[in-house]
């Protein structure tokens, strides 16, 4: 049955209405969870607020397990679901830069939009910086075009990479996530006890 748009069950202008609605729900959940505050987000690196880890990992395991069940029940054709292609070198470098940008800037693009929406100037500056970064990348593209596409592994899944079924991968993710929730809860309790000046905004 699904996915609906690639199979042209939903067509035409409805695409964009749905995009708006999904985007809207995304923004609402991000803001309501506290991702419009960079100090909440950066807390994940210092142990005083693990909201990022909680929301991120819960969303990931719910979607991952749900997707596999959908596939099992025949509701969704996994071959039509976009699997991000893996370009090893480029993605390792990209992940490195994003990690650095994350701990310095305190936002990621999606969360910065919601920060802009509620009037945070640091969000506006981050989003502008992001735009400049994309522009710089595109201008310099001819210099690293080969690097950008080097080590192309194709649309490989995690299970294929490690030679085990994706069901096992999902199960491992769930276990790891739940252990992480418990451990970070302990850490957070301890760190917050020694911290006085942090308050939410």
């Amino acid at each position: 049955m699904g996915p609906l748009i690639p199979q042209e069950i939903i067509t035409g202008q409805w695409d964009f209405v749905i995009a708006l609605l999904i985007g809207g729900a995304f923004g609402f959940i991000l803001e309501a969870s506290g991702f419009s505050s960079s100090r909440n987000i950066a807390g994940v690196f210092y142990g005083y607020n693990f909201v990022v880890l909680r929301v991120f990992f819960t969303a990931m395991i719910v979607a991952m397990v749900g997707l596999l069940y959908f596939s099992y029940f025949g509701w969704i054709d996994l071959d039509l679901v976009f699997v991000l292609p893996t370009y090893l070198n480029s993605m390792l470098f990209g992940g490195f830069l994003m990690g650095l940008g994350f701990v310095i800037g305190g936002f990621c693009p999606g969360t910065s939009y919601t920060a802009v929406a509620i009037g945070k100037i640091d969000g506006i500056v981050f989003a502008t910086g992001f735009l400049i970064g994309v522009f710089l990348f595109a201008e310099g593209f001819p210099f690293y075009e080969d690097f950008y596409t080097a080590n192309d592994l194709g649309n490989i899944t995690i299970g294929e990479m490690f030679g085990i079924s994706n069901e096992w991968i999902a199960f491992l993710f769930v276990v790891v996530a739940i252990v992480a929730f418990y451990v970070t809860w302990l850490i957070e309790k301890r760190v917050r006890k020694n911290m006085t000046e942090y308050k939410f905004e």
Binding site: V62, V65, L68
Partner: peptide
């Protein structure tokens, strides 16, 4: 947490697609 683990474990038990 237990519910989530059971759900994920269920994936391992269903016959292979």
């Amino acid at each position: 947490a237990i519910l989530m683990i059971l759900l994920a474990a269920g994936l391992l038990l269903v016959p292979e697609r």
